[in-house]
Design a protein around this nucleic acid. Sequence first.
DNA 1: TTGTACGCGTTATCAC
DNA 2: GTGATAACGCGTACAA
Lengths: 341, 341
Amino acid sequence: MQAKLKDIAQKSGYSITTVSRALAGYNDVNQQTREHIMQIASELGYQPNLPARQLRIQRTHTVGLIIPSYDHVFSNEFFSQLLLGVGDAASLERYDLLISTQVPGEDEMDAYRRMVGGNRVDGMVIARTRQNDPRIEYLKQQKRPFVVNGRRAPGEVSDFPYIDMDSYNGIQAVVAHFASLGHQQIGLILPPENMAFTEYRHQGYRDGLRAAGLDYRPDYVVYGDLLRTGGYSNANLLLDRQPQLTAIVACNDLMALGVMRALQERGLRVGADVAVSGYDDIPAAEYANPPLTTVHTPIYEIGQRLVRMLIALIDDQALDETQILLPGALIVRESSGGQRG
Amino acid sequence: MQAKLKDIAQKSGYSITTVSRALAGYNDVNQQTREHIMQIASELGYQPNLPARQLRIQRTHTVGLIIPSYDHVFSNEFFSQLLLGVGDAASLERYDLLISTQVPGEDEMDAYRRMVGGNRVDGMVIARTRQNDPRIEYLKQQKRPFVVNGRRAPGEVSDFPYIDMDSYNGIQAVVAHFASLGHQQIGLILPPENMAFTEYRHQGYRDGLRAAGLDYRPDYVVYGDLLRTGGYSNANLLLDRQPQLTAIVACNDLMALGVMRALQERGLRVGADVAVSGYDDIPAAEYANPPLTTVHTPIYEIGQRLVRMLIALIDDQALDETQILLPGALIVRESSGGQRG
DNA sequence: TTGTACGCGTTATCAC
DNA sequence: GTGATAACGCGTACAA
């Protein structure tokens, strides 16, 4: 049997109220009384019953995060980093983290309704926004605190707190880098079309080419799936049709690794024959062979900052910044190759 | 304002009791009444208040998992896979997952006391057992359901439900494989000394050598940290002192990737000059250059099965198996090289 | 400084 | 079939 306030009250001779206040640190309780009570509490191994407390104070001290099912497949690295950032920052504020992985068959919104509508969390972290994201509508309508990793697609209004990476800039920097090495035929493997950030990257590519005086060619551009296998198959697709390409910009590191594998199977040297870049800078990028040029994305830090924003919102504190765009840093490694002849 | 039973009761004209029973699917309520009530509930967007329900029925429908702080650093892949397995299986049973990442300063057990003692979860999943693990003692003493990934170290009694991989066998298979290729000087990079599975792997190595008629040499063995950097530095350490080594067995893939990097920096060809193997078979292993020989470990599946075991325990069902040892499968790839001259 | 009384929203027991 | 009523464990206004 678990010890509860009542047990401590009986054993100490004080009322439940006094015990509650003593343990909660109220200063209107006699010092000796408090010590006595705390002594007994620790003897009994007292732990407050959290559901009861939550019901009473209407607060859970918990933030929620739902992992969409399609994320099981790709970008594990992304989610595990985000999760650790979110989890660490939450722990520091003594918040817990409630996770639900959405099961494939189920309506995505059910998980949100249970967590939010069921009062299991004080606020939500949303990741991987898509175009017309229904989760955001729901949370706005419920008037529950939430923060988002990723803004909406270009053209849509992002009227909510978010932290996003400036992937327009990131891809632009990659293209400028390749152009400065003398590349003129630069292919692009985009994320899936319905992801919010896809068009930003597409535009970054376009404008990067223009800034370098190069033409945009639609047949140099394909949509991938953010997986290694997607990089592999799309690189083959691209090279079958456009063998003149000397550089391939992949929109994440996993796809870039797949691209490298495809090149190597074709007997092409990564870097020397075809330059390759990724995006995200996951640990595997540095350890790839050759090491992968990429854009560093501070996912862990984004997770941390998101939670701090969220907790501030929950506590009704004013936020200094509610919409943050983080620049990515270009990391040049050997997969860039050298200056072109 | 959130709709509660009371609101539905008022609007429908029935009592809270009847509303509760109608929504819970009791069959002692009139069919028309039920439909009427369900209609109103959906109009009001009713969602049951979970903390209240939890308090009342003394069940949370939640399983807990605590991520130790040292795991932030290494083996992300391990934890993200485990987490997804746990999360998916939990979702299928309509359980949620409460995560706490232990903050570095805090006493590890505090997180467990809050989760378990605070009645936030019905049971716990424990991962990465260490020698003399205090978490297991605590949960046994609390008489709370729990399942463990990993048994205790050799010599200790594992009197609790677990699923572990048979890493004794796995490493033995690797050594046998290398020996069959003609290797006679085989180095080993172990996990940290205090991890429960370290000694199993050590013994697998020892017995694998003996089975192949090779001598065990303590100076061929070092302890790593399961990180890429640990593999890198330990490979250099090993090769500085024992340049005659022709094969290095690393106890996880990350370290193996670090070993490969060290070899390549020394101008040695992975496979041809020095064979390398890892353990776990994370996705990066297949995509390494050259692809990495390793032992496949079904972490995702282990996570799933652990949760199913745990939920069975919570529901007081009898388990057919409570202690499961899964064999690992040797995956031979190019980092093995070929037959030795 | 301490105690009494009440309510958070739900489910379960019992009577009608 | 349906409805009062109590209880889960806690926090807090108010009174003493």
